[in-house]
């Protein structure tokens, strides 16, 4: 299922989307599969599957540590696509990774490999619109969405350029900083959501970790919430991981159903 179709389906049900991030291979190949299964059971609409990179500059300590655990457990791009292929679902998978891993595999090949395993979108946090033409073309040819980020400091001129390029959804970074859980919703969230004039769904990420924050972000106009570090923290604890991941995802999804 393409990302666009997923959002259309949710629209009909008057629901917002829960996008759940986990890092592939953290803590192991097999456990990631189980964790993703729990997320899907709980009603996650899109799975953002991180392909770990050695130097993740846009990530905070929680996701950086997850990437290191995954790399130490043997995760690499070949294994990553095997893992994605093993995930039995028709909801869209999205790959989040850094540009050097895509570049070294070859842009065309990376996009083809994505299509073959059910990955419908790619997010590259160190690839701004200015540098993205080649990957954009490779994605287009393969029917994959290249998802761009906007931030509170993105001015209106840049915003327009980015909104013209992004497809699937636009990733709204609600605050300055790296990924990670926060205790509050950034005040800048509403400002930036109000500034985004587009038909593409707006997915808010960076700092959302519980149902209250999810509900708040949705009430401010988000079409989707992206939650990562909160799941990673449960995974890192090693205690009742699948059960707790499923419970949290259920709560978050509940917030996506009722707070319109």
């Amino acid at each position: 299922m393409r990302i666009h179709d997923k959002f259309s389906e949710l629209d009909e049900k008057d629901e917002k989307a829960l996008i759940a991030y986990v890092c592939a291979g953290d803590p192991s190949f097999e456990e990631t599969k189980e964790i993703v299964k729990s997320l899907i059971n709980a009603g996650a609409d899109i799975i953002e599957l991180g392909l770990p990179f050695s130097d993740p500059v846009a990530d905070g300590p929680t996701i950086e540590a997850a990437a290191q655990r995954a790399l130490e457990a043997g995760m690499n791009p070949d294994r990553y696509f095997e893992l994605a292929a093993d995930i039995d679902t028709d909801i869209p998978l999205v790959c989040m990774t850094y540009y050097n891993l895509i570049y070294q595999r070859g842009l065309e090949k990376f996009a083809e490999d994505c299509v073959n395993v059910g990955i419908r979108g790619i997010i590259v946090p160190d690839l701004p619109a200015e540098e993205a033409d080649d990957l954009h073309n490779a994605c287009k040819e393969n029917g994959i969405d290249l998802i761009f980020l906007v931030t509170p400091v993105t001015d209106n001129r840049r915003m327009e350029t980015i909104l013209n390029k992004t497809s699937g959804f636009v990733y709204v970074v609600s605050r300055l900083g790296v990924t990670g859980t926060r205790s509050d919703v950034a005040r800048s969230t509403k400002d930036i959501l109000d500034r985004i004039d587009t038909d593409v769904p707006k997915a808010v990420g960076f700092g959302i970790s519980d149902k209250e924050q999810a509900a708040e972000v949705i009430s401010e106009g988000a079409d989707a919430v992206i939650v990562g570090s909160a799941f990673i923290k449960i995974i890192a604890s090693g205690e009742n991981v699948n059960e707790r991941v499923e419970t949290l995802a259920r709560e978050l999804k509940e917030a996506c159903r009722t707070e319109n």
Binding site: V57, A129, V153, T154, V173
Partner: peptide
């Protein structure tokens, strides 16, 4: 060369 950085840094 180029500018392979997170979007948040582009304005800076």
């Amino acid at each position: 060369g180029g500018q392979f950085v997170p979007e948040v840094l582009m304005p800076a």
